[in-house]
Computed example of a mutant assay.
Amino acid sequence: MKEYRAFLLGQDGHIFDAAGFEASDDEDALQKAQSLVDGCDVEIWQLARKVGAIRAVANGLASEGRPKDESLRAEQARQVAEEYANDQRGIIKKLRKPQN
């Protein structure tokens, strides 16, 4: 199983939530991410590689499913994205170290 992340995008295109999950391959990851499309667009990533995106129907964007405190959710999403980026930087540093 491979690790994937799904980033939920608000109407403004900014991340407001993220979810990590495991899938056997990209197709399985895209199918699993379908359940997250609740009136918002979802991007699916494996490490630093974008696997794909699922777009919500334009007229199907529902306001009842939106977070009540968008600024708090936006800050949480920023923190998740920052942690993910830091993880990736750590992996890159390890890969760049010369092997003795």
Score class of each variant (00 low, 15 high):
18 A>P: 03
19 A>L: 12
19 A>I: 09
19 A>R: 07
19 A>N: 04
20 G>W: 11
20 G>V: 11
20 G>T: 15
21 F>M: 10
22 E>R: 10
23 A>H: 02
24 S>V: 13
25 D>V: 15
25 D>S: 15
26 D>P: 15
28 D>F: 01
28 D>Y: 04
28 D>M: 02
29 A>H: 02
29 A>E: 02
30 L>M: 13
31 Q>H: 07
31 Q>K: 15
33 A>N: 02
33 A>Y: 02
34 Q>M: 10
34 Q>F: 05
35 S>N: 02
35 S>M: 08
35 S>E: 00
37 V>I: 04
37 V>W: 05
39 G>F: 01
39 G>V: 06
40 C>E: 05
41 D>M: 03
41 D>Y: 02
43 E>Q: 14
43 E>S: 14
44 I>W: 08
45 W>H: 13
45 W>L: 10
48 A>D: 14
49 R>P: 09
50 K>T: 10
50 K>Q: 09
51 V>Q: 10
51 V>I: 14
52 G>R: 10
52 G>H: 11
53 A>F: 01
53 A>L: 04
53 A>G: 13
54 I>F: 03
57 V>F: 05
60 G>W: 01
60 G>K: 03
60 G>V: 12
60 G>P: 10
61 L>C: 04
61 L>G: 07
63 S>K: 13
67 P>T: 12
67 P>L: 07
68 K>D: 00
69 D>R: 15
69 D>F: 05
69 D>M: 03
70 E>Y: 13
71 S>E: 05
71 S>N: 07
71 S>P: 00
72 L>K: 15
73 R>D: 07
74 A>E: 03
74 A>Q: 11
75 E>S: 14
78 R>Y: 06
80 V>D: 08
